[in-house]
Design a protein around this nucleic acid. Structure first.
Length: 227
DNA sequence: GCGACAG
DNA sequence: ATCTTGTCGC
């Protein structure tokens, strides 16, 4: 896959915020997912080891079988610390490195973090989408910004997520009686479509298969990681 | 000033 | 992300 390298990563927090503000206006909120989806990818990083190294995994699944097609991993020591609201400056470089080596480009990418549901409307999913040109969806396990009402307990139930007068995403129940997932537009997708594709990837677990398997692969499981 | 805060 | 036991449910 070709990656668009349009800004440096080795920046101070203030410049990272400026970059986010500049790029946020380029995010597409329109559904650009192809009519026939053949492959869906998920990306995630492991927690840092004792020396600060992390492993990124991008997994590609066939759709609709959700069978594993490809795994690419990338290991490294993030130069940027974890700062709330600047997650992509820590995680995106390794994800892009893995995406660059992908032999089977996906039609859609799920990111483990927010998309538009971000203080500057430019979470990790937006950043990855903009730099790859892929349709992306933010798929976070907890809330960063915004508020929402109660939602029914059944799978598929949702409540819109509001922040500063805007709808920035949705709380989406992906299994019966579990905490909702926070779904938002990353790039080239609209919110109803994002919710649809997340649900289409949820089988047995709260987390959709692409990001769930990426999480497993990033942690280095023998079942999924090639020796 | 205080609280909140993706991974 | 991690610290943390037993326990309830499918």
């Amino acid at each position: 896959m070709n990656i668009r390298h349009i800004h440096p990563w080795d920046v101070a927090a203030a410049e990272a915020i400026a970059i986010q503000r500049r790029l946020a206006s380029q995010v597409s909120h329109q559904n650009g997912i192809p009519p026939v989806v053949q492959r869906i990818a998920g990306a995630d990083l492991s927690a840092p080891d004792k020396e600060g190294y992390v492993q990124c995994a991008v997994v590609v699944l066939d759709f609709p079988s959700l069978q594993l097609v490809e795994i690419v991993t990338a290991r490294g020591k993030p130069s940027f610390p974890y700062v709330t609201g600047l997650l992509s400056f820590r995680e995106a470089p390794l994800v892009l490195e893995a995406l660059e080596r992908l032999a089977h480009p996906p039609d859609l990418l799920l990111a483990d973090g927010q998309g538009l549901a971000h203080p500057r409307r430019f979470g990790l999913a937006c950043h990855l989408g903009l730099l790859t040109g892929l349709p992306t969806i933010g798929c976070a396990k907890s809330l960063l910004v915004g508020v929402h009402g109660l939602l029914p307990l059944e799978k598929g139930a949702s409540a819109s997520l509001h922040h500063k007068g805007e709808v920035v995403g949705a709380a989406l129940r992906t299994r019966h009686n579990v905490r909702p997932l926070y779904v938002s537009i990353g790039h080239k997708v609209d919110l109803p479509s994002a919710m649809h594709w997340v649900l289409a990837c949820c089988t047995r677990y709260r987390v959709p298969e692409p990001t769930r398997l990426a999480h497993v692969a990033a942690a280095g499981k023998s079942k999924t990681t090639p020796p």
